[in-house]
Design a protein around this nucleic acid. Structure first.
Length: 647
RNA sequence: GCCCACAUAGCUCAGGCGGUAGAGCACUCCCUUGGUAAGGGAGAGGUCACAGGUUCGAUUCCUGUUGUGGGCACCA
């Protein structure tokens, strides 16, 4: 005799077991109509699942987040049904829900092209319109195996084999189509329909590139067409802030075939780049770092000695491999820094040594991996290596986290996720060292209460790491900052310090980068600000415009004053109307626009307008300079409100 | 490296069932000297990514290469 407790605390008692849908129907016909599934004691179940004992029940409808996920998951099955009707030889593999949608991996060697996708989508629409109920059957293992072998679903059979202890599985039948799933799924196709197939791509069985390739079809699915449309619009908007587009529009950089994966920085892009580097350079100096610079091309013998030739060869650009002495471009700065540490004898009194290098590294990438500024083949790291005693290790890591937080905050990032990546299969060093290094990082995560998660097996070949992740315009995650506790390189390269006891000891070494790759960080930054940089970062901070030729000399003198004071100002004395100039420089996202006409010349003033359109009125050049110098401090990210507070 | 697309003027893009191409913006010149998001006129700009093949003829069709885009795998 089930007693069912609803979310509002009310209870309903029934004389016999009944399904979730029955309960919904008992509450009201409207609810029954929109019931997708139910949560029983915190666990999701299909609407048809029967309740035997006392439980708390929450009815899941499309309004719930879980409901949306169910719709997405079932849309993946709908895709499966369409595929099997159109391509009976295709074998379905796995079809999970992802952010905003779903995908399905399919074994179909001929592959799918865009036309196929359209046809599949049309078939899905037809099937969604049809009156098709989704029937769930808990099916004994033997029968599941029989069903899938009869249907030629080899991959489903393999998936069943992966569940040796499970006696029966949920099979979901959509008319002629059968899929296996943990569920829950929608009870009827009428919940499906607001979807769009978005992409076709390749993938691999079990995500391993050594396995056979599969076809993957991506789709997005929503509760209704309005949500779908809004999502598609969001994507379009996000694409407008793509750093590659803005890089072109704002004349920051370009790529060309002669140098794949290596940006040509234009003047404005380089201003941005060097502003960021200068900022970082000052920052680390304030935090007790020394800065060094090491060679870019080192002998292969050296890379064999460091272990990179063994573990990292395929990513290294080699110079003249056939010669007696061959060289390779440095893919990492760490060995060079160690060579500097090794000069002379180090005492415990010297530690910690915080050694920074803004070193340019080169990494040969698989052809499909390059991606604008986010994934290049030559990039500068804001790298540093901290050599310290074991006792200093955790404090040093804590200090780094503080520095990273400070920098990200000043640059306007707040949503930062941290991943602790532990030992990979391919690695060097003893398990005891890995244990200690991983433990140290975990301790710091807990101590600082970071927003962190574990990423097992994803560490570098020489060290576990904390990765700091930022998001790009369309939600992709990019690793920027990283902290790597390395107990291997000190051994391998045999670095020592003299302890208080007069004995030789092995220092710990921590690799760390805050922006990671300056190039990537700039890519994220461009998208983060949609090219609308705060004053302190803007490549061109001020544009000075005259109205007619008469004010040319005055405009030039104002420009000179600003440039002398260290403001990145430019002059536009072209024979164009002021409205035209304002439009152009607003589109170029110049933060401060200065107009000088006869009035300003007469009063020895300048008329100031912010890029957002705010008119700050007229002021003397001296007053403008004072304002700008204050407003252009690093971390001052809102010019508009700064000005309204200071005028 | 793997799958699917794409590559036409400086930029954004159109076009051609095979007969060497077009728009808007930008650029140059002329007129205009105009007070806060596009004043007007004229002109110049292209080996249609590269290399083969088919063809009387290829920018267009086929193959390959390179690069780019979306993913997979790999990674900062």
């Amino acid at each position: 005799m089930p007693v069912i407790t609803l979310p509002d605390g009310s209870t309903r008692t029934y004389s016999q077991p009944l399904s979730i849908l029955d309960v919904a129907a008992d509450i009201g016909p409207g609810l029954a109509k929109s019931t997708l599934a139910g949560e029983l004691d915190g666990e999701l179940h299909d609407a048809c699942d029967v309740i035997h004992g006392d439980v708390s029940l929450r009815i899941i409808t499309p309004r719930d987040e879980e409901g949306l996920e169910i719709i997405r998951h079932s849309t993946a099955h709908l895709l499966g049904q369409a595929i099997k009707q159109l391509y009976p030889d295709a074998q379905m593999v796995i079809g999970p829900v992802i952010e905003n949608g779903f995908y399905y991996d399919i074994h179909y060697p001929p592959g799918f092209n865009h036309n196929d996708l359209e046809q599949i989508e049309q078939r899905m629409r037809d099937l969604a319109q049809a009156d098709i109920a989704v029937i769930k059957t808990m099916t004994p293992r033997a029968q599941v195996l029989a069903t899938f072998s009869e249907r030629g679903e080899d991959y489903k059979l393999k998936l069943v084999e992966d569940l040796p202890e499970v006696e029966s599985m949920g099979l979901y039948q959509h008319a002629d189509y059968v899929d296996m799933c943990r569920g829950p799924h929608v009870p009827h196709h009428r919940f499906l329909g607001s979807f769009k197939l978005t992409a076709v791509s390749g993938s691999y069985w079990r995500g391993d590139s050594n396995n056979e390739p599969l076809q993957r079809i991506y789709g997005t699915a929503w509760r209704n067409d309005k949500e779908l449309k809004a999502y598609l619009l969001r994507m379009e908007e996000a694409e407008k802030r793509d750093h590659r587009k803005l890089g072109q529009q704002l004349d920051l950089f370009h790529f060309e075939e002669s140098a794949p994966g290596q940006p040509f920085w234009h003047d404005k892009g380089w201003l941005l780049y060097s502003t960021l580097l200068d900022y970082m350079r000052n920052k680390v100096r304030e935090h007790g770092y020394i800065e060094v610079q090491t060679p870019q091309v080192l002998s292969l013998d050296f890379w064999k000695y460091t272990g990179h030739w063994d573990k990292y060869r395929e990513n290294m650009f080699v110079v003249d491999e056939s010669a007696d002495t061959s060289f390779a471009l440095k893919p990492m700065n760490c060995p060079g820094n160690v060579q500097i540490f090794k000069q002379g004898v180090k005492s415990y009194r010297d530690l910690p040594v915080r050694m920074a290098e803004f070193g340019k590294v080169f990494r040969h990438e698989a052809s499909g991996a390059r991606h604008g500024l986010m994934r290049v083949q030559g990039f500068t790291q804001d790298d540093a290596h901290i050599f310290c005693t074991p006792e200093q290790l955790e404090d040093e890591v804590i200090a780094m986290c503080g520095l990273i937080n400070e920098v990200y905050t000043e640059l306007g990032f707040t949503d930062i996720k941290v991943q602790l990546s532990t030992r990979p299969e391919q690695r060097i060093g003893s398990d005891a060292d890995w244990d200690r290094a991983e433990q140290a990082l975990e301790n710091v995560c807990r101590h600082l209460q970071l927003d962190w998660s574990l990423n097992p097996g994803d560490g570098a070949f020489y060290a576990p790491k904390l990765d700091f992740q930022l998001h790009d315009a369309i939600g992709r995650v990019w690793q920027c900052g990283t902290i790597q506790v390395d107990m291997n390189l000190p051994n391998r390269l045999d670095i020592l310090y003299t302890g208080e006891d007069g004995e030789k000891h092995r220092p710990h070494m921590v690799h760390r980068a805050i922006m990671g790759s300056i190039e990537r960080f700039l890519g994220v930054l461009i998208e983060h600000y949609a090219g609308d940089f705060p004053l302190w970062l803007a490549p061109v901070q001020v544009m000075i415009m005259n109205i007619t030729d008469t004010q040319q000399a005055y405009a030039k003198s104002v420009h000179q004053q600003l440039v002398k004071a260290g403001i990145r100002a430019e002059l536009d004395t072209r024979n164009e109307k002021v409205g035209y100039k304002i439009r152009e420089h607003t589109l170029q996202k110049v933060p401060v626009l200065i107009v000088v006409g006869d009035r300003e010349v007469e009063q020895q003033q300048v008329a100031v307008r912010l890029k957002q359109g705010t008119d700050l009125g007229s002021m003397s050049t001296t007053a403008l300079l004072e304002l700008l110098q204050q407003a252009a401090r690093p971390g001052q990210n809102d010019l508009q409100s700064f000005c309204s507070n200071h005028l």
